[in-house]
Design a protein around this nucleic acid. Structure first.
Lengths: 170, 170
DNA sequence: CGGAATCCGCCACGATACTG
DNA sequence: CAGTATCGTGGCGGATTCCG
């Protein structure tokens, strides 16, 4: 089964973090649950799959069509990961043609609620972020142009000095 | 300035998503804010930086020491990204030696609160996830071993049949 | 001290082909 | 229809070097 990723060893109990939690304990490079979960839901497709399954259970081909752009490989992998984490359940109907349904588990539903909070935050602040980016980019390009002007000016002065020097010694 | 990533064009208004939101509008491949923010906070270091800055403002070298494992390149890049998005502010003290302080903006603080919800969810459900993984892995290896046993059995039968055939024709 | 620029290894992901 | 197997590649991130 090749096990392309590596999460089999060391459950990595991060210790309890009541109240004044120790940041380094839940996100350092040691494999902590937080990072794994975050990486899972934040990868290219998981979030979308979870969101789609929130409405109702879907079969493989339905997910494939709705997402449009995902390869069958990545859809399979994404669903396997979510299934392994207990966020999505997979039911196979032994029939011809084969049919496989996916749906959110209760745990997956609670995660989706939490995710929604993040999505909501983004929706509420996306204009602030866009504004900040525009301001930042403008500032950077302005400084850049100013630096170029200064450089050109120094070049001009240097050339003048050189010319004056040649006039004196020549 | 090379601009290694590309978020300069098309702000990508995802449309309002009141109530029954359209999932495909906030996470499809078109560059929507949600994905960008999620990718930002979920990348290898941003979340940790945000968490550390939540306590108090820190200078570059302090962050570098506390994180331990991050390269100066990635720390710089991470901070620049966060600064560009208006989540972190950067203040330079013109002195010798140079000193640069980073701190969360009000916007960054609100994001940190939202993130905390996700972290809390993970902390509350990490044992369920660990259990689900263990169960899944156990099931997979069990099926695998069963398949191997079946294969060996079929091999044995096939050999017997072959031997019988030779006995008849020989 | 706080970067910027450069080179490079690795692997996550996509495209393709095959199976039950 | 719902996958698995294989190969090629772009880009992320680390190591190193140089600058103000």
């Amino acid at each position: 089964m090749t096990m392309e990723d590596g999460t089999s060893k060391s459950p990595g109990y991060c210790g309890d973090t009541d109240g004044d939690y120790d940041v380094l304990q839940w996100d350092t490079r040691e494999d902590c649950e937080v990072r794994q979960i975050l990486d899972r839901i934040a990868d290219k497709w998981s979030l979308l799959v979870i969101a789609l399954l929130d409405q109702r259970s879907l079969r493989f081909s339905e997910l494939r069509r709705r997402i449009e752009g995902i390869s069958q490989r990545m859809l399979t992998r994404t669903l396997r990961q979510l299934e392994r984490d207990g966020l999505v359940s997979r039911t196979v109907y032994p029939a011809v043609p084969p049919r496989v349904d996916y749906e959110l588990t209760p745990l997956g539903v609670t995660l989706h609620h939490t995710i929604r909070a993040l999505v909501t935050w983004t929706e509420e602040h996306q204009n602030e972020i866009a504004f900040a980016r525009a301001a930042y980019d403008a500032r950077v390009t302005a400084e850049q142009e100013a630096a170029e002007r200064d450089s050109a000016e120094r070049d001009a002065i240097a050339r003048e000095v050189l010319a004056a020097g040649r006039a004196n010694t020549g």
